[in-house]
C-alpha cells in the first residue's frame, strides 16, 4: 500500500516506449485531477510516468493544417497564448475559467481532456473548433476528432500504451463567430453546472448560419457534441423561435442528472437558456 512507482522520461520516444512496456503506468501531467483522485481513494499504489520533463509536450506551434497545442501545455500557457487569444478566443476564455491560478499553473490542456470529466472546461471549445487529438504509441501517430474522443466517464478512445501528444486545431473560417458559457454556482473555483461552446459560420453580412456547432458540458456521462445541427443551416438566428429550436434540439442530446451542483430539471433549463444566450452573444444580439 501507499507506494508510487515513478518514472520520468526525457523524450517522447522514451515515454512511448515506457508506456508500451508498462501498461499499468498512468501519465502524470499537472496532477490536479490525478493526485486529488489518488488521495480521495486512500492513496493506493500507483505507477506514474511524469511527462513534465519533456519540453516537446508543452510546445505550441503553427502547422500547415492548423495550430498545434501540446498536451503538456499548462492551462495557464493556453490562457495567455496570444495566438490562441486571437484565433481561438473561447479556448482562451474557457482556460481562464478553469479552477484557480494555482490549478491553471499545474493543470494541462491534455489532462483536462484525458481525465474525460464531462464538466471539463477546455474540452467544449476544442470540440467546436473541430480539434483533433494526436495520439501516439510505439506503432506511430493517429488522429481522433475530439468529439469522438470520449467514450464514458473517465474513459477515452485511447488504449493501453497510447498517450495524447496534443491537439491540432484547424484555423476557423473568416466568417466564424464563437462564444462560451460556464454556468456555475459560485464565481470562483467551481465546476460547471452546465457548460456551452458555440461556433457559427455566418453568411456574409447576415444573421443566418452556414454552419453551427454546439458542445455541451456537465450534462451527461461525456461532453456532448450536438449532432444534426445542419438542419439549421441557413436559418435566421435573429429569430427567437429559431434560437429556441436550436437550444431545444441541443438539449435533446443531453442526459443531465441531479447532483450537488444542480438538479436534472434545473440543468435542463440551463442548457436551453445558455445555448440561446451563447448564440446571441456569438452573433452579438441582445
Amino acid at each position: 500500500m501507499n507506494n508510487i512507482k515513478y518514472f520520468l522520461p526525457k523524450s517522447l520516444e522514451e515515454a512511448v516506449k515506457y508506456l508500451s512496456d508498462n501498461n499499468d503506468a498512468k501519465v502524470l501531467a499537472g496532477g490536479t485531477d490525478l493526485i486529488v483522485k489518488w488521495k480521495k481513494t486512500g492513496c493506493p499504489d500507483m505507477h506514474l510516468m511524469d511527462i513534465r520533463g519533456i519540453n516537446k509536450f508543452a510546445e505550441m506551434n503553427d502547422l500547415s493544417e492548423g495550430f498545434f497545442i501540446g498536451a503538456g501545455a499548462t492551462i495557464e500557457q493556453v490562457e495567455s497564448c496570444e495566438k490562441i487569444k486571437a484565433d481561438f478566443p473561447i479556448l482562451s476564455e474557457a482556460a481562464r475559467n478553469v479552477g484557480s491560478v494555482q490549478v491553471r499553473n499545474l493543470a494541462t490542456i491534455g489532462g483536462n481532456s484525458c481525465n474525460a470529466a464531462p464538466s471539463a472546461d477546455t474540452v467544449l471549445p476544442l470540440i467546436v473548433y473541430e480539434a483533433e487529438a494526436v495520439i501516439v504509441s510505439v506503432s506511430g501517430e493517429k488522429r481522433c476528432t475530439l468529439k469522438d474522443f470520449f467514450v464514458g466517464p473517465g474513459k477515452t478512445v485511447m488504449r493501453p500504451g497510447e498517450m495524447l501528444k496534443g491537439f491540432v486545431l484547424p484555423k476557423p473560417k473568416p466568417c466564424t463567430v464563437v462564444s462560451f458559457a460556464k454556468h456555475s454556482r459560485r464565481a470562483g473555483m467551481d465546476l460547471a453546472t452546465v457548460g456551452v461552446a458555440v461556433k457559427i459560420c455566418l453568411k456574409k453580412g447576415e444573421k443566418s448560419a452556414e454552419e453551427i456547432s454546439v458542445a455541451l458540458g456537465a450534462v451527461g456521462p461525456v461532453p456532448v457534441s450536438v449532432k444534426g445541427l445542419e438542419k439549421f443551416n441557413g436559418a435566421d438566428l435573429s429569430s427567437d423561435n429559431v434560437l429556441k429550436e436550436i437550444a431545444e434540439f441541443s438539449f435533446e442530446q443531453a442526459s443531465p442528472i441531479t447532483d450537488v451542483r444542480g438538479s436534472k430539471d434545473y440543468r435542463s433549463k440551463m442548457i436551453v437558456q445558455n445555448v440561446k444566450d451563447c448564440i446571441c452573444k456569438a452573433i452579438k444580439i441582445d
Binding site: R185, R186, A187, G188, M189, D190, L191, D259, V260
Partner: peptide
C-alpha cells in the same frame, strides 16, 4: 454527506 470538500461545499471565494 454529499459535499465534504471545499469544491462541493461552497464558501465564498475572492471572486464572489
Amino acid at each position: 454527506l454529499m459535499n465534504p470538500s471545499f469544491l462541493d461545499y461552497q464558501m465564498p471565494t475572492a471572486a464572489d
